[in-house]
Amino acid sequence: MMIDIVSAIQSPNASLAVQQPTQSDFSTWFSNEIARANQALGTADSQLKQLAAGDPIPVHEVMLSLEEAQLTFQLVTQVRNRLLEAYQDILKMQI
């Protein structure tokens, strides 16, 4: 159960609304994170190519883009690994 905190903060006299999470919340989030990781990797790659070509791009921006891409990719990879572990645990359960 999720409580809509933002609306409670905006109108403190209103009662807290309890919402049932939809089944697509996680899949939507995971799809968005994969797209975000792909975009971060593409941006980092393009900036790295620009730097290698001698374009005037600050090195610190390239390094920040590379680090952001790495962290985003690690997040997606760890979530995937945890999902696979949970799936394998479910398969091992006795019925």
Rank of each mutant, 00 (worst) to 15 (best):
A17Y: 00
T72V: 05
A37E: 12
L48G: 02
T43V: 04
Q70T: 06
G54V: 07
E33P: 00
R36A: 14
Q23G: 15
D89Y: 07
L64I: 08
L83E: 06
N38Y: 04
N13F: 05
A69V: 12
W29H: 02
S24Q: 11
L84N: 15
T77A: 12
G54H: 08
Q94D: 14
L16N: 07
S31V: 04
S65E: 06
S46G: 02
A44Q: 03
M63N: 09
F26V: 15
M93F: 04
A53W: 02
N38F: 03
V18G: 03
T77S: 12
S15G: 04
A86W: 04
L71H: 12
D55Y: 01
E68V: 03
L16W: 02
V79D: 09
L91G: 00
F30L: 15
L51I: 01
S31Y: 01
I90C: 03
A14F: 00
T22P: 05
S15Q: 09
K92M: 11
D25M: 14
Q19V: 13
S46T: 10
M63E: 15
E61N: 11
T77W: 03
P58D: 08
L66F: 04
Q70F: 08
F73E: 10
E61Q: 11
S65L: 08
A14L: 09
Q47N: 10
D55N: 11
S65Q: 07
T22L: 14
